[in-house]
Every structure is written in structure tokens, then in C-alpha cells.
């Protein structure tokens, strides 16, 4: 019998493990706590190394109603997306989202301009309604985020949530708050592996442990620059497994946000009959964007459509089945 044909890469380092949510014993109130990262090899190559944690799906919800939601989302979230607490609860309990990602879009000074108190109140309420960890995102306006996010962080002290996004031009305030209150942080870089690394160094220089940083590589949707982030993630993960500590963080990919901006997810079948059913097409756009991110090493996918979440969740379970032979 010929010798076995096999080629195993010996990697020198595993990705950091990030713990999300703290239970009662640890000073939090979460019934369910989760861990991501810890990969010893490239995605789903179980025969080469351990992949100890299942990639997670966080449902993207908003503090204030979004009036530009695409048709498929608006219709399928009807009745629940008006109230963020109901929305979060339904997506966790009925759809199976692993955690909840709350975007505080309403605090933007040019938007609804809701108060910091309202933001704190809402996050606390969602924490009370679901037993899982949360991801809390600011509105993207640096000044406003620096006013509001530290207050939300303080009010949820000890819960070990995930806050974002820290960027190269604005990371100090949020990092300090997350260190003080025991939270994790999202480090966002603009599709650039060098900036991703640089930002991780800056954040860790402030005293944040490496296992509390997750990389947001800024993905584009399927057909809208997906391949750039895909290759950035492959490069960063190869570097991480080869020993670069400052890139050895898990990835979070904002799949819902990006894929529902794609034309293919929004155009009705009446305008583009050759593209087929609009609802199914939008869902598949989100699903395929998510599946591609998983192949590049994603640890947390944030997603929107209930059906897309169900499909990807079931496919993740399939991918995590270790092969029989």
C-alpha cells in the first residue's frame, strides 16, 4: 500500500480566545456566556489543528427605526423591529441568534439625536430582556460616541460586553472605558492589514489585554469589494498562525449592514426580472456574503434577516462537524 498522501502545515501560534458575557460568579448577569477565537489552523481544517469554538451570529438591531430598510427586511421584521427590546428578544429566542448587536444610530447629532440617558436606558433594558452577551456600537460620529459609549460602558460594568468601533483616529476614550469596566473592544481598520496591526498595538499599549480585542477588517458585500477584505483576512490569519501576536485576534464581520446595501438585495423583481425573486435574492446575498467571510476566518458575523440567520446558523453547524474518515 502506498504511503498516505497528506500535507500538514505546522503553525506556531493560535488565535486569542475572547470571552463574551460574564455570569453571576464573575460579576455579571449573563445566563449564557460565549467564547470565540482559539483557532490553531485555517478555517475548518480540523485534521490540522483545533478549532475549538463555533463562529457566532449576532443579530443587528437599531435603537431607532430605520426608514430606509429594504423591502424584504421591512416585511419580514414587521411587528418586531419597532421596539428594539422585542426585536432583540425575538431574534434570540425564535430565530436562534447567538448574541445581539445594538447599533446606537439614534445618538447621531444629525440623526434622531437621542440622549445619552436614553442610550444607557435602552442597553440596560435589552440586557434585562435577553440572557446573552451584547455588542454595543456607537453612531460613528467620534465626538458623540466618546460622550455616550463610556456612559453605556459604565452602566454595564462587569458584563463583559463587546464595544465598538475603535478606529485609528479615535480609540483612546473607548479603550479606556472598556478597560475600566471589563469589556471587550472592536478595532476597526479600513481593509488594511498594516493598520489593523497598528491599531491593535495602540490599543494594547493603553493596557488592553490582547484577548479582549477583536478585528473588524471592514468587509464589502458580495459583489461590492468582498474580495478585498477576504484577502486581508486570509493574510492576517496566516500571519497570526505563523506567530504575529498583534494580528492573532478573532474577526468580526458586519455582514447584514453591508449586504443589505447591495443593489441585488434591494431591487424589486419588477425592475430586474432576470435576477429572480427579490426576497430570496436579498436573503441569499446576505447568506453568501456570510459564507465567504467564514471561509476567510470570521468568528462573529453580524446579520439582519431572520431567514438568512437560520440558514447560516445551520450551515455553520454542518461545517463544524468534524469529518468522519
Amino acid at each position: 500500500m502506498a504511503e498516505e498522501l497528506k500535507m500538514i502545515t505546522t503553525w506556531s501560534q493560535a488565535v486569542c480566545e475572547m470571552r463574551l458575557g460574564a455570569g453571576r460568579q464573575e460579576g455579571g448577569s449573563r445566563k449564557v456566556t460565549l467564547t470565540v477565537g482559539g483557532e490553531e489552523t485555517l478555517p475548518f481544517l480540523f485534521k490540522e489543528g483545533a478549532l475549538p469554538h463555533t463562529p457566532l451570529i449576532a443579530v443587528e438591531i437599531f435603537d431607532v427605526p430605520q426608514d430606509d430598510e429594504p423591502e424584504a427586511l421591512r416585511r419580514d421584521l414587521r411587528g418586531i423591529s419597532k421596539d428594539p427590546v422585542t426585536w432583540a428578544k425575538a431574534m434570540v429566542e425564535d430565530i436562534g441568534a447567538d448574541l445581539v448587536c445594538v447599533k446606537l444610530a439614534g445618538i447621531h447629532p444629525d440623526g434622531a439625536n437621542t440622549s445619552a440617558g436614553q442610550a444607557v436606558n435602552l442597553v440596560t433594558k435589552i440586557l434585562g430582556a435577553v440572557d446573552r452577551p451584547l455588542i454595543v456600537l456607537g453612531c460613528g460620529e467620534a465626538g458623540r460616541d466618546n460622550e455616550v459609549l463610556p456612559l453605556v460602558s459604565e452602566a454595564t460594568k462587569g458584563e463583559r460586553l463587546l464595544f465598538g468601533d475603535a478606529v485609528q483616529e479615535n480609540y483612546k476614550t473607548l479603550t479606556a472605558a472598556c478597560i475600566a469596566d471589563g469589556h471587550n473592544i472592536i478595532a476597526e481598520s479600513p481593509i488594511d492589514v498594516n493598520i489593523a496591526k497598528q491599531l491593535n498595538i495602540l490599543i494594547s499599549d493603553l493596557g488592553m489585554p490582547l484577548d479582549r480585542i477583536i478585528i473588524n477588517p471592514t468587509i464589502g458585500a458580495l459583489g461590492y469589494g468582498l474580495e478585498y477584505a477576504y484577502s486581508i483576512m486570509e493574510r492576517a490569519r496566516n500571519a497570526a498562525l505563523s506567530g504575529d501576536r498583534m494580528l492573532a485576534m478573532p474577526f468580526i464581520c458586519f455582514v447584514g449592514q453591508e449586504s443589505w446595501r447591495a443593489k441585488e438585495a434591494k431591487v424589486p423583481a419588477s425592475e430586474s426580472p432576470a435576477w429572480g425573486d427579490q426576497r430570496e435574492r436579498g436573503i441569499m446575498w446576505e447568506v453568501v456574503t456570510a459564507m465567504s467571510c467564514l471561509q476567510a476566518g470570521a468568528d462573529i458575523l453580524t446579520m439582519r434577516h431572520p431567514q438568512a440567520i437560520k440558514i447560516v446558523k445551520s450551515e455553520i453547524q454542518e461545517l463544524m462537524k468534524k469529518a468522519q474518515s
Binding site: 458580495l222 459583489g223 468582498l226 441585488e264 432576470a274 435576477w275 429572480g276 425573486d277 430570496e280 435574492r281 441569499m284 446575498w285 447568506v287 453568501v288 465567504s292
Partner: peptide, 10 residues
């Protein structure tokens, strides 16, 4: 098409 188009795009 709603299944094939995303695959061709990927």
C-alpha cells in the same frame, strides 16, 4: 437566478 447570481458574483 436568485441562487445562481450570488454564486457567479462570488
Amino acid at each position: 437566478p436568485e441562487h445562481i447570481l450570488p454564486l457567479l458574483t462570488l
